[in-house]
Nucleic acid binder design. Structure first.
Length: 413
RNA sequence: GGAGGGAUUCCCGAGUGGUCAAAGGGGACGGGCUGUAAACCCGUUGCGGUAACGCUUCGAAGGUUCAAAUCCUUCUCCCUCCA
């Protein structure tokens, strides 16, 4: 099956600049690029579908070019934003760009081979641009009338749009032109909010070089309740295990809503389509199996097989009914000195001091609402005494908050 | 440059001298029901304190007052209209 068809069947295609691209992708090699802004120091799952799409393209023999927006991030894309984006200074952006390398290499193969991915930073060619030259060579191809009709600009005209941001489209179009000229990059992909910017690049290339380039956009991936991906009670779900542990990451995915599982299997895994359609037949409670598969597969892609297995085991231990938690299970853990527990301390205090609850008030509320369990027994209230005797043979006490959040208190000497 | 409007707790948004830690909604969290789902119902939602109570908060800094989110002064930022 052609890669385009595959992407389409998985629901990953929103718009294409030219339908003929579907066939051409099967016969020609298309170096293609996707831009990532460099504002976040680590990628979160909002970018995951995009990263995996690059991987799918690479598997089909197309060279991925990851463009880190080191230069454009200093301007701020108005598309899809209601307010001006925070500008970062050069050192922050450079630092973020470095972290990108590490993250990207998990998803695409980087290197010098014909279909190996490369990472480029547009600061390299944008920072030295000469204003007059740029206006003359690039600016002349853009019509302000036309730009003003763009949906993203229209929206911002109501709230206010700075001249700086208004220029973003030119810079992004210029990026595409530059990559086209230097790396034969003939395809740009991006979120549906990038359509206008991508088309601008395609047109610029046609005007300047008289050649054809292409664009594909992905649909905006939302949860069935309309929320954007990637937020949870704990904040964003990051791909970096330092920021979101594999266990939490796994938990995010097992906890998706029924209505989302099958879509997400398509978007976020490499499972063959017929296997997914089998899972799609599951009904009601059985869907948990589909969620398990989803969580395992995505965790494996992001953190590797070993971490995925650990996360799965920890989840089973915690949710299969038994109160026994595997002493090695990978659940959030805090340590406390044995001497601090010699005298029993109130539950709420412990929760606050270990950071399990964000404040004493918070801890108290949870305990009072009956939401805290100590080693499987419901805590009587904020004053519920926690002492050394509660620690099991492994020196640990398991706190459960709500139905899903587990914390291990490990007693150390 | 001129005229006017605005900034409130995570978000939206009420509040024009005491009864305001601040209505209402959203979100989030906890409980119930379930399937680690959704929907629904109940509760909580500044910090400290077992509590009584105390402390800090309404763009920033000063001031008036027994008492200020509310009045005055200066400053910062935002918006609208005119140029």
């Amino acid at each position: 099956m052609g890669v385009f068809k595959e992407l389409q069947d998985r629901g990953l295609i929103n718009q294409v600049t030219d339908e003929s691209l579907a066939k051409r992708l099967d016969t020609e090699s298309f170096p293609h690029y996707i831009g990532f802004d460099a504002t976040a120091s680590s990628l979160h799952i909002g970018s995951l579908a995009t990263l995996l799409t690059m991987r799918r393209m690479q598997d089909a023999g197309h060279k991925p070019i990851v463009l880190v927006g080191g230069g454009t991030t200093m301007v701020g894309d108005p598309s899809g934003k209601t307010e001006m984006r925070k500008m970062l200074d050069k050192t922050d952006i450079a630092e973020n760009a470095r972290k990108f390398h590490k993250q990207m290499s998990k998803f695409i193969k980087l290197g010098d081979g014909p279909s190996d991915g490369v990472i480029v930073n547009n600061a390299e060619w944008l920072m030295d641009l000469n204003y007059i030259e740029f206006l003359r060579d690039i600016g002349k191809h853009f019509s302000v009338n036309r730009m003003l009709t763009a949906e993203s600009v229209k929206l911002r005209l109501e709230k206010g749009l700075s001249f700086l941001e208004f220029n973003y489209q030119l810079l992004q179009a210029y990026d595409f032109l530059h990559l086209f000229q230097t790396m034969d990059c003939r395809l740009q992909m991006g979120g549906s909010d990038q359509w206008g910017n991508i088309v601008a690049g395609v047109e610029l290339i046609r005007r300047v070089c008289g050649k054809e380039a292409y664009g594909i956009t992905f649909p905006l991936i939302t949860k069935s309740d309309g929320q954007k991906m990637g937020k949870s009670e704990a904040g964003a779900i990051w791909l970096d295990p330092e920021l979101t542990s594999p266990y939490e990451y796994y938990q995010y995915w097992v906890n998706v809503e029924d209505n989302d599982v099958i879509r997400f299997l398509n978007y976020f895994t490499f499972l063959p389509l017929d296997e997914i359609s089998k899972l799609a037949e599951l009904q009601g409670e059985e869907l948990r199996e589909a969620k398990r598969v989803l969580a395992y597969e995505v965790t494996k892609l992001t953190h590797g097989e070993e971490e995925a297995q650990k996360a799965e085991k920890a989840a089973q231990a915690a949710f299969s009914g038994g109160n026994e938690i595997d002493p090695n299970a990978d659940i959030p853990t805090v340590e406390i000195k044995a001497e601090d527990l010699k005298e029993a301390i109130p539950l709420a205090k412990l929760m606050a001091s270990t950071g399990i609850a964000s404040s004493g008030k918070e801890a108290k509320r949870l305990a009072m609402g009956g939401g805290v369990t100590v080693n499987g027994d419901k805590a009587e209230g904020p004053q519920h005494p926690i002492s050394l005797e509660l620690a099991d043979a492994h020196g640990q006490i398991i706190l459960r908050i709500g139905k899903k959040r587990y914390h291990r208190i490990r007693v150390i000497d």
